[in-house]
Simulated assay, not measured.
Amino acid sequence: MNRWLRQRVDAVYEQLLSREIAGAPTHVAVIQDGNRRYARKQGDDATEGHQAGAETTERVLEWCQEIGVEELTLYAFSTENFNRPPEEREALYDLLCEKLREFADAERVHENEVHIRALGAVDRLPERVQDVVTYAEERTCEYDQFVLNVALAYGGRSELLEAARGVATDVESGDVDPEEIDVETIERRLYDEPVRDVDLIIRTGGDERTSNFLPWHANGNEAAVFFCTPYWPEFSKPDFLRGIRTYEHRQESWRRTRARRARALLGAMSDHELVEARSIVDRFRDSLPTAEQPDEEELDATDSSGPAAD
């Protein structure tokens, strides 16, 4: 297929996907995999692959804002990246400094009131990276229309481990009562500012694993996951929209399951539970196939059966 025809097909496909998207997830997290493999395929070194990937990152930020995503988290530098060759690490540090400063000064970031913040063990990074992180966070700290999280020196397990150690220390010192430990207790120790639950994880590069990315906010929320084969520099808007469609299908499936369960349980519930079940069926019955949707007479019958049992 020649280049012109490919571009035309991609444009039509993008329009089709855009029409199919009815809503957007609130928080999207992206594992940007495949920069080095892309570079090898192009005959370049790893640095060129990371540079090309940074350009994709800028486009994804724009796509998120276009469809109404409110928070985007990018897995930019994992704790495993410390094991890469020194020259590659230094090139990554330079790129992080360049792009973070560029983002912090970008007119579109300030026009759209993007709040930039770092997640992870930033103190493990070179001082020049820490300085730019501080610069970007301070430049955008007053904004709240869109949140861009950059995961740096990040490891999901180590993050949870540190939070657990903090809670254990406070319990031992008597500052925290074990009976009072709840979700908020852990979340306060994960990040300085609240992070929304993750609705969708996107991973490029062909690997089908989430690599311990935001385990508390993604696994606990049962986030939808979209794996795709393009390397990160090749990730396109149709790929992005396919990810959003995966999230929507997951939401539709969840709604349908809730409606079916509520309908099946209507006849077995006690009176005080019946009102809530009826509410769930009313709210989600449009998610059911037409043949499975209860009619008004069926729902009225459940209402009339309640008082008779009193």
Results as ranks from 00 to 15, higher is better:
Glu297Arg: 12
His115Leu: 02
Arg278Asp: 07
Asp123Ser: 14
Glu172Ala: 15
Asn221Gly: 08
Tyr231Thr: 04
Gly120Met: 03
Arg188Leu: 06
Glu113Phe: 03
Pro85Gln: 07
Tyr154Ser: 04
Gly68Tyr: 07
Ala136Asp: 01
Asn149Ile: 02
Tyr247Ser: 09
Val167His: 10
Arg128Ala: 06
Thr57His: 01
Glu172Val: 12
Val171Arg: 01
Cys141Tyr: 01
Glu297Leu: 11
Arg263Phe: 11
Asn219Arg: 12
Asp175Glu: 14
Ile116Val: 03
Arg261Cys: 12
Trp232Gln: 01
Ser173Leu: 08
Ile31Val: 15
Ala76Glu: 09
Gln130Val: 08
Trp232Ile: 02
Glu222Cys: 08
Ala121Cys: 02
Arg6Leu: 09
Thr56Ser: 11
Arg8Cys: 06
Asp303Ala: 13
Ala39Gly: 04
Ala277Thr: 10
Glu138Asn: 07
Gly174His: 11
Glu98Gly: 02
Arg196Ile: 03
Gln51Arg: 15
Gly156Glu: 01
Glu137Trp: 01
Ser78Val: 00
Thr57Asn: 05
Leu274Trp: 00
Arg250Glu: 14
Arg196Cys: 14
Tyr247Met: 09
Glu70Gly: 12
Asp10Ile: 06
Glu138Pro: 01
Glu142Tyr: 04
Arg283Ala: 10
Leu17Met: 09
Arg245His: 14
Ile201Tyr: 04
Gln65Pro: 08
Leu125Glu: 03
Leu119Asn: 07
Glu14Lys: 13
Val69Gln: 00
Glu66Leu: 03
Arg258Asp: 11
Asp182Pro: 04
Val275Lys: 11
